[in-house]
């Protein structure tokens, strides 16, 4: 079955992961900007990062026949440096006309601090001014319920925000209802220990339905599994769900949401693979 991984940090993964994902049916990935494992020191560091996300990663993905899309922001973990955050937000428009840039993300909260709220609101302001989609990171573990509630409060402060153009990510049993009640899109992250398992994600979809929801691996530089979406597909098959219903979650829904961006140009996989180039050596 063809699928999208709508949230995966491929910059942290090796080319073989693209290959393995493609063999399992992955036809597209979307990659939000995130924390590199250390706080970056300058706006030029982010400029280079955004170049990698928008120029080299699409090329590298293309070697395996995977279509690559990107989101731009400064991560909430780095929002305590308000001055640098504002410099990055001011620089983002340089990249908003690049092919495959879907919007602003993953913005959100990490420790639910005042500075994180300030920078979150300024990202939302940028998205509203430039008519971009928004991809939202919600905190982990004990911070999640409070942080997700605060994020939704801040989004509802701004009457320009259309919930149908916002994806709230990393939802779990106690936050999926909050997001869906207000009309936002949701995503569940299949991640070892700290987020959702394929089985719990399937439970949530059985309870809340398959509209405006998707699953992702959030594969990154930490313990994570970039082929987690196929694990979810297998879980639904074990439960006897039909192929068409599974496809809606892992393929149709991401495409529907991403189509809200005028820069989302997607070539159906059968056409794309006929024209896929061959790879090159890195070393």
């Amino acid at each position: 079955m063809y699928f999208f991984d709508p949230h995966v940090h491929m910059i942290s993964r090796v080319t073989d992961d693209y290959e393995r994902m493609a063999r399992m049916g992955c036809v597209g990935v979307s990659e939000p900007a995130f924390w590199a494992g250390f706080d970056r020191g300058s706006v030029d560091g982010f400029r280079d990062y955004f170049r990698q996300l928008t120029e080299f990663e699409p090329t590298r993905a293309d070697w395996s026949g995977v279509q690559h899309y990107a989101w731009l922001c400064i991560n909430a973990k780095e929002a305590e440096n308000v001055e640098l955050s504002r410099e990055v937000i001011a620089m983002i428009p340089e990249f908003l006309d690049k092919p495959g840039v879907l919007g602003i993300g993953e913005i959100g909260l990490n420790k639910n601090t005042p500075n994180e709220c300030t920078i979150f609101r300024e990202h939302v302001e940028l998205a509203m001014r430039t008519n971009e989609l928004i991809l939202i990171h919600t905190p982990h573990l004990d911070d999640k319920l409070k942080g997700t509630s605060m994020i939704i409060d801040m989004l509802l402060e701004d009457h320009r925000v259309d919930p149908g153009r916002v994806l709230i990510d990393h939802v779990e049993e106690h936050t999926v209802g909050l997001a869906r009640e207000e009309g936002f899109w949701c995503a569940m992250t299949l991640y070892p220990v700290t987020k959702c398992t394929p089985s719990r994600a399937a439970d949530i979809i059985e309870m809340y339905g398959d509209d405006r929801i998707m699953v992702n691996s959030a594969g990154d530089w930490g313990p994570s599994n970039p082929t987690a979406v196929p694990d979810f597909i297998m879980e639904l098959r074990r439960r006897g769900q039909s192929e068409s219903k599974i496809k809606k979650i892992v393929y149709d829904n991401p495409i529907e949401f991403f189509s809200g961006s005028e820069r989302f140009e997607f070539t159906p996989p059968d056409v794309f693979r006929e024209n896929a180039p061959t790879g090159v050596d890195a070393g």
Binding site: N112, T113, D142, L145, S149, D153
Partner: peptide, 29 residues
């Protein structure tokens, strides 16, 4: 599962971002 998630969650104060809310300086919400 939802009950256990809530059990392991920090408390949240509705209305934290309204004009008349009393903000604690380092921990809104």
């Amino acid at each position: 599962a939802e009950q256990i998630q809530v059990l392991f969650s920090d408390p949240y104060r509705s209305g934290w971002n309204t004009a008349d809310a009393t903000e604690t300086s380092d921990s809104p919400g």
